[in-house]
Amino acid sequence: MKKIAFALAAVLGLSVSMAHAGDKIRIGTEGAYPPFNGIDKDGKAFGFDVDIANALCAEMKAECEIIAPLDWDSILIGLKKKKYDAVVASMSITEERKKAVDFTEPYYSNNLTLVAKKGSSVDPANLAGKAVGAQRATIAANYVTDELKDVDAKLYDTQENAYLDLASGRIDLLVSDKLPAYDWLRSEQGQGFEFIGDAIDVNDKIGIAVRKKDDELREKFNAAIKAIVANGTYAKINEKYFPFSIY
């Protein structure tokens, strides 16, 4: 049964993309990265990515179908095999991925941020000698080791352990992706902490992936992104999830 459904989806995906213009656009998302994309109890996709995708479709006056959940590792393979026409799944635009697919203009940016205890006198411009934590193998960790050379760097295997040491005071400061950290600040453990300084731009832009040379769809998305940002739809969706702009 699973196999049949699989084959059917492939055939459908193929036919849809062949009869592209004016037809249904199939949008894939992962469904495992809340609050950006998730799957609710009824199996329906929700989240920032999904809301943006729906807003874009409304703007393009196109009929859309959200396909989720999808495996992150093979999400671009499904796109190439025409099981869906676009991926709206908080995907960072990287050189490596650009070899396989094309990206639209970014629809949000992932910044790094510094997190410290409320009222602490940490000065973002002068961190020498401070104990600074980050999760190993992340952009945040690279930032700590490359940009903050004279700090006492502590690398953690999970973000949770880094939060624990921030809470216990072993580290003065945490460098983290801003949006997950925002979730932590709202948790009970994160109550006494706050963002300090400005968000750090690490040029991590999130875009919509489309197949190579599918320029028509890409341009339509680009125009729609511009339009929803201009007409306030984007701000409304943004507000639903974050009290600061993530565009």
């Binding site: 934590g133 190993r136 193998a137 080791t145 690398l155 040491d165």
Partner: peptide, 17 residues
């Protein structure tokens, strides 16, 4: 390395990252 020390394994993992 699991408690942030840069012992041989900690350094290895950090370099691989």
């Amino acid at each position: 390395y699991t408690i942030t020390l840069f012992d041989l394994t900690g350094v290895t993992r950090t370099i691989i990252a």
